[in-house]
Design a protein around this nucleic acid. Structure first.
Length: 285
DNA sequence: AACTCACGCAACCGCGGATGT
DNA sequence: TACATCCGCGGTTGCGTGAGT
């Protein structure tokens, strides 16, 4: 497995981009399109490495990038998606049109973590209404992060979670969903006794490439049953308090809930894993 | 006015999967 | 099959800037 040499090793420019460099990159991509990043700098007349060009384009120069502050709606969606997906910033960004993974990652690390820490502190000092388990889950993650950061100050270690892949073993599921009141266990909806293999079809970058808005992936392709269930229940308009909230939830993730119903009917009606595998595949095409 | 400090964000780094030869 | 290269990702760094003293 090789690795492209970094800029410093081949004497290329580093650091902030100049207006001239931006112009060269924009002009080249406008006339030749994205891609072939390794050869792009030379062709475009840039003394940058391909990775740097790609990063600059993806995170800053792309015309479809949304500028301005993260809205409360986007903030809420980031928190929800992070509870489901963890630090998979590119997947989270995929649900926020115009936002980049880098931007969301920065926003999370600066604004949201700080806010959740403040919430944690305030709720520790004042015992009031029981805290949402969603918030608790995020706080637990943050505490873990703190521990990792403590270690990182003495020795920088990197943890690379395995990329999700298609797996087949059937796990014992624990139905749960997360709403404003917390995580609810064993609620009606999914079936706890039997979980077909296809339920464990994981998030996959390949699948995602087939269709960025492939809604089947969120419905049936979570890393595990909990993820699927959280995702579905967390955004299910049918479980919102009123029609306005439901419409907003549906619009926010642009998710056709008839697929969910169809899926559940299918689950009840047919335990043939082969047929259901095909059903899942059909959703992913 | 000068200095310090904390914060936000753009950019870099290294890893590993995907793809090509 | 083995190796090289490309590409995209998440983690991290470091600089610019504004607030506070």
């Amino acid at each position: 497995m090789g690795r492209a040499p970094c800029c410093s090793k081949v004497g290329l420019h580093r650091g902030p981009w100049t207006a001239r460099e931006d112009t060269l990159l924009i002009q080249y991509i406008q006339s030749h399109g994205e891609g072939h990043w390794s050869s792009l700098p030379k062709k475009a007349g840039l003394l940058r490495c391909g990775k740097s060009c790609r990063l600059r384009w993806m995170n800053y120069l792309r015309p479809d990038i949304k500028r301005g502050n993260i809205t409360p709606e986007e903030d809420d969606l980031i928190v929800r998606l992070h509870a489901l997906l963890g630090n998979r910033w590119s997947l989270i960004a995929g649900r926020l049109p115009g936002r980049t993974d880098n931007e969301i990652k920065n926003y999370w690390n600066t604004h949201i973590i700080k806010r959740l820490k403040i919430q944690k502190t305030s709720t520790q000092n004042v015992a009031t209404k029981p805290k949402s388990k969603c918030v608790q889950a995020e706080e637990a993650k943050i505490s873990d992060d703190d521990q990792e950061n403590i270690g990182a100050t003495t020795k920088r270690t990197k943890l690379h979670l395995p990329k999700p892949t298609r797996v087949s073993p059937v796990k014992t599921p624990v139905g749960s969903f997360c709403d404003g009141e917390g995580i609810h266990e064993q609620e009606a909806g999914f079936h706890d006794a039997e979980v077909p293999d296809y339920f464990h079809v994981s998030w996959s970058y390949d699948m995602k490439k087939k269709d960025d808005d492939c809604l089947g992936e969120g419905l049936v392709c979570g890393e595990n049953v909990e993820d699927c269930y959280d995702f579905v229940q967390g955004f299910d308009p049918a479980r919102c308090q009123n029609s306005e909230e439901a419409a907003a939830a549906a619009e926010r993730v642009a998710m056709p809930w008839n697929i969910c119903e169809e899926y559940e009917q299918d689950l009840k009606a047919d335990q043939d894993h082969g047929q259901l595998e095909s059903f899942v595949d059909s959703l992913l095409i």
